[in-house]
């Protein structure tokens, strides 16, 4: 009964400031059931002098999940669904799989990643204080601050930028590490092929 799940302490907080900003940002975002594109991630990690850069492509299927395919510096795939998180590395045979149906903490983490990639401000608003501004005729910028202790244990701030799509996410972790993810070549087609559908169906 002791609150032992560490991973788990990332949730909670139900602040509902239905600010106009949120409404405006949502209006500017494209309401797409599917988004594909390329990403470039720069991760700054303690113990590494230079940022760790990885590139690849991704697919976000609403209500199904995210496929995150890293191409460089090495090939690996990450599959995130409502039920699980699994990762595989093509060459070395390394793989792991986590079931999130029984662990709300992991499910919440998945939900957070979905929301960040999809720009689902309404969901984010449940767990963060949302501040920001509209930029130009089509753009926007948001800064998210966790509203509860559990999430604050992991993230100091999350910054997002975008227009019709989310273009950039900047994650600042409490312990000092940080990542910047840039999105590019975003499109709503083609639909998932057989392999992709298979992975999402897991």
């Amino acid at each position: 009964m002791k609150p032992l799940v560490l991973v788990a302490c990332l949730l909670m907080g139900l602040s509902a400031h239905a600010a106009d900003l949120v409404k405006d940002v949502r209006a500017r975002l494209v309401d797409a059931p599917l988004v594909r594109g390329k990403f470039e991630q720069k991760k700054t990690v303690a113990g590494f002098k230079k940022p760790l850069v990885s590139k690849g492509d991704f697919l976000l299927a609403r209500d199904q999940g995210v496929l995150w395919n890293t191409r460089t510096p090495f090939a690996s795939t990450l599959t995130l669904t409502r039920k699980s998180l699994s990762a595989e590395q093509g060459a070395g045979g390394a793989a792991y799989h986590l079931d999130s149906t029984k662990e709300p903490a992991l499910a919440a983490m998945n939900e957070l990643l979905f929301a960040l990639l999809a720009g689902d401000v309404a969901t984010l608003q449940q767990r963060f204080k949302v501040e920001g501004a509209l930029v130009g005729p089509t753009g926007w910028k948001l800064e998210l601050t966790p509203t509860d202790a559990g999430l604050a244990r992991v993230f100091k701030h999350i910054r997002m930028e975008g227009d019709g799509y989310v273009r950039q996410v900047h994650l600042e972790e409490t312990r000092g590490d940080s990542s910047v993810i840039l999105f590019d070549a975003l499109a709503q087609t083609p639909p998932p092929d057989a392999t992709e559908a298979g992975r999402l169906g897991k």
Partner: peptide, 8 residues
Amino acid sequence: LMKLYQPA
């Protein structure tokens, strides 16, 4: 490597 490069 996978865990190191994982988005978050």
